[in-house]
């Protein structure tokens, strides 16, 4: 069942240096009870895509130029501010990359959590406090009762991220966007957060997991969307993307990841750099770095080729298997 349908979203930013497209005609779905990974390098538009779902694109420089974002069949882009506020936190919540800057430094953890609960639910202060404390326990914070009185700076990064996760889940939303939830954390703490996210899914919450790390995608996701320079280049199930990727960028990205092994040897790097968003090339944005590029890639934007079972890629070299 489709929970979220993003249709042809284009987001532009106006800056002193000019106008650039951060997200270019991006469409995808997230089904109920599914973890979808959105993977790409910095500046590819993955975070902006997430922010546009929650309508949190910074104004006035950014705007969603076209497209629809259907959540349970209703277009979020048509909602007024008041209606949108009721969606955020309650129906769709977000876990940010840096918990330290996402939490208020001036308020105690408990206060921040209770405020959110009271905003969305008719509970008494006491009831809200109990809900919050219970969630801190559920995400594995020791001495939850005491931690409710702590300020964010008194907690470690891993603990802060647990608080963020508790806040994102305590209103039992249908959909959670997690933007690089473990990037700021150490691997052993990351493993703990993964366990929590797996728990989350047991409560039938759908998750959009945004990351630059293919390892995280492999570990957590059912379906993968690969973005490069503001566009989606490939989408498929986890096994499609990891065992039979077809877009040269996906293939290159997977090959360039160093393997955990004792054989030191040269890595298979993708040549060149990500183009500047002010200065995208014509045609396919990956063509300058692509080993398989030919004339057509220069002149035309590649459309998606459907490879069946939800596997699609935007590349002229990709052929449908008949």
């Amino acid at each position: 069942m489709k929970l979220l349908e993003v249709k042809n979203i284009t987001v532009k930013f106006e800056t002193d240096e000019g106008v650039f497209k951060a997200v270019d005609d991006v469409s995808f779905n997230v089904n109920k009870n599914e973890i979808v990974g959105l993977v790409g390098e910095s500046g590819c538009g993955k975070s902006v895509t997430a922010l546009s779902i929650l309508r949190l694109i910074p104004l006035p420089s950014g705007r969603i130029e076209k497209g629809e974002i259907l959540f349970n069949g209703k277009d979020l882009l048509k909602f007024d501010a008041e209606k949108m506020r009721k969606i955020r936190g309650k129906k769709i919540s977000m876990i940010f990359q840096e918990p330290a800057s996402a939490l208020s430094p001036l308020h105690r953890i408990g206060q921040q959590m209770v405020e959110t609960i009271l905003l969305h639910k008719s509970k008494t202060n006491k009831e809200a406090w109990n809900i919050a404390e219970n969630w801190l326990k559920r995400v594995g914070i020791p001495d939850a009762g005491e931690r409710m009185f702590a300020y964010p700076y008194q907690l470690s990064g891993g603990m802060q991220q647990r608080v963020m996760i508790a806040m994102a889940l305590m209103l039992e939303p249908d959909f959670v966007i997690a933007d690089e939830p473990t990037t700021a954390l150490d691997v052993t703490i990351q493993a703990q957060v993964f366990e929590l996210i797996r728990e989350m899914r047991k409560s039938h919450t759908a998750i959009l997991l945004i990351t630059h790390d293919m390892g995280v995608i492999w570990e957590m996701c059912d379906r993968v969307i690969v973005m490069y320079a503001s566009r989606i280049v490939e989408e498929g199930s986890k096994s499609d993307i990891f065992s039979k990727p077809v877009h040269p960028y996906t293939i290159g990205l997977l090959k360039s990841i160093p393997k955990l092994s004792g054989n030191a040897g040269r890595l298979k790097a993708i040549p060149g750099y990500v183009p500047s968003p002010y200065n995208y090339p014509s045609g396919c944005y990956f063509r300058d770095r692509c080993p398989d590029a030919f004339d057509k890639c220069k002149n035309e934007k590649p459309e998606f080729v459907d490879l069946g079972q939800g596997h699609r890629a935007a590349c002229f070299r990709v052929r449908k298997n008949e």
Partner: peptide, 14 residues
């Protein structure tokens, strides 16, 4: 560095 660029820099160091 971005993943696709990491490998280049590691190769250069090697």
């Amino acid at each position: 560095l971005d993943v696709s660029v990491q490998a280049q820099v590691i190769n250069l160091l090697m």
